[in-house]
Nucleic acid binder design. Sequence first.
DNA 1: TTTGAATATGAAAATGATTGTCATTTCCAT
DNA 2: ATGGAAATGACAATCATTTTCATATTCAAA
Lengths: 146, 146
Amino acid sequence: MEFAEKVFFKYLKERGFYNTAQRRLVVQEFLRLEGHVCADELYRAVKKKHPRVGQTTVFRTVKLLKEAKLAAEVNFTGKRRRFEHEWGHRHHDHLICVGCGRTIEFANKQIEKIQQQVTGSMNFQPLHHRLEIFGHCLKCRKEKGE
Amino acid sequence: MEFAEKVFFKYLKERGFYNTAQRRLVVQEFLRLEGHVCADELYRAVKKKHPRVGQTTVFRTVKLLKEAKLAAEVNFTGKRRRFEHEWGHRHHDHLICVGCGRTIEFANKQIEKIQQQVTGSMNFQPLHHRLEIFGHCLKCRKEKGE
DNA sequence: TTTGAATATGAAAATGATTGTCATTTCCAT
DNA sequence: ATGGAAATGACAATCATTTTCATATTCAAA
Ligand SMILES: [Mn+2]
Ligand SMILES: [Mn+2]
Ligand SMILES: [Zn+2]
Ligand SMILES: [Zn+2]
C-alpha cells in the first residue's frame, strides 16, 4: 500500500470516517492516474475494473481526497474541476496552451518570494495561491507556421 | 455615451452584429456596476429598469463583452463566472480572503517581469495570466483575535 | 422608404457538473 | 456477534449556462 493511501485512511480515522472498499478503490485509482484528472474520469477508470461503484461515491471521495491533502484542485477552464496529486509533490504553477490544452508545470522561487513581500506589505496572510499563464506552446506555434 | 460603449459597438459592427436596444442596456449597466459581477447579477440589475430583457440575452451579451475586451473573466471559487471592467483598466491580480470573500487588487511589476523570463525560457508565448492568492485579510485576522 | 435576408430575442427545454435524498447496506468499537 | 453510526448508490434535484425555435428586429441595398 502506498504511503499516501495510509495518510488518507489515517485522516479518515481521525474524523470517525470508515475505511471502505469503495474508498480504497478510488484512492488507489487516483494515485495510479497521472496529470490533471476530473471526478468523472476517475469514476470511469474505477468503474472499468469495479462496475458496481457509484458515481456519487467517487465525487464524495474526491472531496475527501482534497480535504486530506492528497489531491489539489486545479480549474483552468472554469468548466469541470480537475485534481492532481498533492501528497509528496512540490508546489508548482502552470502554463496552459490555449491552442492544444496542454499544461506545462513550472516553479519559480523568485515569484514565490515576491508574493510573500506583496502579501506581507498588505497585511494579508497567504494560505495558498495559483498562477496560471495562458498562451501558445512551442509545438502549437511551430504548427501554425512560426 | 461612454467611450467603452463605442468600442463595443464598433466591435459588433466589424463582425456584422447588430446594435440592439438590449445590448445597449446591458453594456451600460455593466459599465455602471463596479467590482466583480456575475451574469445573473447583471441580468437582475438590467431587469430592474427594463423588465422585458431576457436572461439569455444578458448571458449572450456578457460573452460578447468579453470578446470585445470590455470585460475580463475572473473565477475565484470555481462556481459562477464573474466579470470585471477591462477596457481602460490596468492589469492587476487578486488577493482573496477565504474568511469573508473580499478581494484585494494588486499589481507588481517584478512578478510580471519574472513571468516573462519564465515563459521566455520555456519557449511559451504568454497571452494573459492570473495570479490569485488566497488567505486571510487583516480584518478577518483581527476579528478572530489576532 | 420599403424590403428582405441576416441577425437577435426570449421563453422554454436541454445540458452538464455536481449535490441532496433516502432506503438499504456496511463498518467497527464494544 | 451486534447495534448504532456512517456509507452506498440509484435517482432526483440543483445551479449556471447553453441550445432551440418561433417570432421580432435591424440595416444595407434597392
Ligand atoms: Mn499540475
Ligand atoms: Mn479585479
Ligand atoms: Zn499547444
Ligand atoms: Zn477577510
